[in-house]
Amino acid sequence: MKPIELESICKTFHLGDTLVKALDKVDLCIDRGEFVAIIGASGSGKSTLMNVVGCLDRADSGQYRLEGQSVRDMDRRQLADIRNQRIGFVFQGFNLLARTTALENVMLPLLYYRGSLPAGKARQRAVEALQRVGLADRMHHEPNQLSGGQQQRVAIARALVNDPAIILADEPTGNLDSRTTLDVLALFQELNDSGITIVLVTHEADVAEHARRVIEMQDGCIRRDLLIANRRRAEVTALAGRRSS
């Protein structure tokens, strides 16, 4: 069962009087454990693809199966539960809650978890997720006390905390300098090595080179889909703080 299966997905936006085909019959399969980078110019449809895959938006037509489950006929609240339990989001702007500690930010998805989860267990899972991203020693810091890279790692811990099928990262390095970009990419590679499926949207070619597979979008279609034989490994030296924890 593949985490993501898209069949001729179409999505059209109305911009004034003109119709913009953001996605034009996109077919895409992503296997378990893949690290996929989606690249393309702005307006190529990559963000729309990301929103559809992340169940934030619905396709106009086509079939989307997430872990074999069709999401086409789900209502808003079912989609919310899918986002909560199957998908981890990492955004360009980190999107952490201000004046809320790292730990509380990571625990946020567990707040909306429908199953039974005792408070102690929820906290423990959040601490474990922060340990995975090497920020266990900063869990009581608020976002404005953390660097950009650290904030993004908190966001990644938040994406991990519900043990999702895939992590969707939308321009996760867009707001970071080149060194912390490498930190974050190294973390993604490490998580990918441990078996987590990652889909990363970027417009930077050298970021995409860290993935195993690169999909290039253009005008709402997939123009190229290629596997990278010799992908770049990100330097992890910059993450010294993480190792020591």
């Binding site: 992340g54 919310a80 339990q85 999107n95 946020l108 707040l111 909306y112 938040r158």
Partner: peptide, 16 residues
């Protein structure tokens, strides 16, 4: 608005 967006994205239902 942004906070609401975050909460919705990570799985809050409208009802929440």
């Amino acid at each position: 608005t942004r906070e609401i967006g975050i909460r919705l994205a990570i799985g809050a239902r409208s009802g929440d």
